[in-house]
Simulated scan of single mutants.
Amino acid sequence: MEAQSPLNQTLCSQSISFSVWPPTQRTRDAVIHRLIETLSTPSVLSKRYGTLSPEDASAAARRIEDEAFSTAAASASLDDYGIEIIQLYSKEISRLMLDTVKATAALDNDATKTPDSAMPGVSATESKSQSPSL
C-alpha cells in the first residue's frame, strides 16, 4: 500500500461542504432580470397569454422571485445542501409566473369583452374580423 502525501492526507481529512442555498443576491437579481425578459418580450408564453409592459413585468418579476424565495426559505433545513430547496424555488417561480400571465390574460379578456361578443375569450373586434364577409 502506498503512503499518501501530506497534501492528500490533509485533503482527505478535511470535509468539504457545498451548498446551493440560499442563492446569492447576484443570482436572485439574474432570476429577476430573466423573469422581466420572459414576461415582457415575445416568447412561447406570450403567444398564448400576451406580454406585460416592462414596468408591469418588473413589478411582477420582483413579486414572483420574492414569494418563491420566501416559500423555499420557509422549508429549508440545515441538514441538506439545498438541492431540494432550489428545486422548490424553481418550481415556485414557474408556478407563480404562469399564474401571473394567466391572471393578466383573464383581466385583459374581461376588459375587451362586449355583450355582443359571441366567442368567450375573444374580443368583439377579433370576433368581427373572424366572421365571413358576404
Rank of each mutant, 00 (worst) to 15 (best):
E2M: 15
P6A: 00
L11T: 02
L11Y: 01
S15M: 01
S15H: 05
P22V: 03
Q25D: 03
D29K: 10
H33P: 03
I36E: 15
I36A: 10
I36Q: 15
S40L: 06
L45G: 03
S46P: 05
K47E: 11
K47V: 09
K47R: 11
G50Y: 12
G50N: 08
T51M: 04
L52S: 08
L52R: 09
S53N: 00
S53L: 00
P54H: 01
E55W: 05
E55C: 02
A61K: 09
I64Q: 04
I64R: 05
D66I: 00
D66V: 00
D66A: 01
A68D: 04
T71R: 06
A73H: 09
A76S: 13
S77P: 15
L78G: 11
D80H: 01
D80G: 00
Y81L: 05
Q87K: 14
L88F: 02
Y89F: 05
S94T: 10
L96K: 08
D99P: 13
K102W: 07
A105I: 02
D110W: 12
T112E: 05
D116V: 14
S117C: 14
M119Q: 13
G121P: 04
V122I: 15
V122Y: 15
S123A: 14
S123C: 14
E126C: 06
E126V: 07
K128A: 06
K128V: 10
Q130T: 11
Q130I: 09
L134F: 10
